[in-house]
């Protein structure tokens, strides 16, 4: 029974969603939207589960003095500060238990939750995002090494696109007459991106689409059961 009920629910809901893609008539027409709404409601409640888990895991590591347990204290303190600020003074649009707390707003310019969010959290997020530029440089350095024919092709294409997308590309090929405009680096870069790159991306997307249909059918028909722990 533990196995049959989830399989039946999956089959039933999966089939309804599939059918609703083709039948606009009620009750199928808006069933996908309705179920999407249900999913949002459930995931909204599930956030509490996540937060409880975060709290429990961190607390366990601190109490057991796990390696680097000091970091978990910082996590918990930050979590509690945001929670308390949110509950007591609310956010930009939501009043908290202490209502709009004009005194604090006059001092900080914002409510405490929004202040921390804007001046601490957003900057930390931006810092993480900006790391991407450096990682991109290091990954490119490794990827663009001419080890064999394929990697040489990648290197050549990458150099052409990089040059074509910068002002130096236009400058380098600016002397080429207009009759040979297709040899201008920006045009070569555009050609690579618009035709070769787009073709490759679309091939991946089409195959991924087929994969999605195949996986969905396996799940709907109960052949794929790994999500139930493979039972």
């Amino acid at each position: 029974m533990r196995r049959q009920i989830p399989l039946f629910i999956t089959f039933f809901i999966g089939t309804i969603i599939l059918v609703s893609e083709f039948i606009p008539h009620k009750p199928f027409g808006n069933i996908s939207t309705t179920l999407g709404g249900w999913f949002l409601i459930i995931s909204g409640f599930a956030i509490i589960l996540g937060q409880l888990n975060l709290f429990k895991v961190n607390l366990t590591k601190i109490s057991r003095k796990a390696p680097n347990w000091q970091y978990y204290i910082i996590s918990l303190v930050c979590f509690l500060i945001m929670l308390v600020c949110g509950i007591l003074w609310g956010t930009l649009r939501q009043p908290g238990l202490l209502y709009n707390s004009e005194g604090l707003v006059a001092f900080f310019g914002l409510k405490p939750f929004d202040y921390i969010f804007k001046y601490l959290f957003e900057n930390l997020s931006a810092t993480m995002f900006s790391l991407l530029a450096f990682f991109m440089a290091s990954a490119s350095y490794r990827a663009f090494r001419a080890r064999n024919a394929e990697s040489t092709l990648l290197l050549v294409a990458a150099v052409l696109v990089m040059l074509g997308r910068t002002t130096i590309g236009s400058t380098l090929t600016g002397w080429i007459p207009d009759s040979l405009t297709y040899l201008h680096l920006p045009n070569i870069a555009n050609f690579i991106m618009e035709y070769l790159n787009t073709a490759g991306q679309r091939a991946i997307m089409i195959c991924a689409g087929l994969g999605v249909i195949g996986s969905s059918l396996r799940i709907i028909l109960g052949i794929e059961r790994s999500y139930l722990g493979g039972r």
Binding site: C207, A208, G211, V212, G214, S215, E224
Partner: peptide, 9 residues
Amino acid sequence: GEELFAASA
């Protein structure tokens, strides 16, 4: 792409 979806099978 599709290899990800095929992996479990």
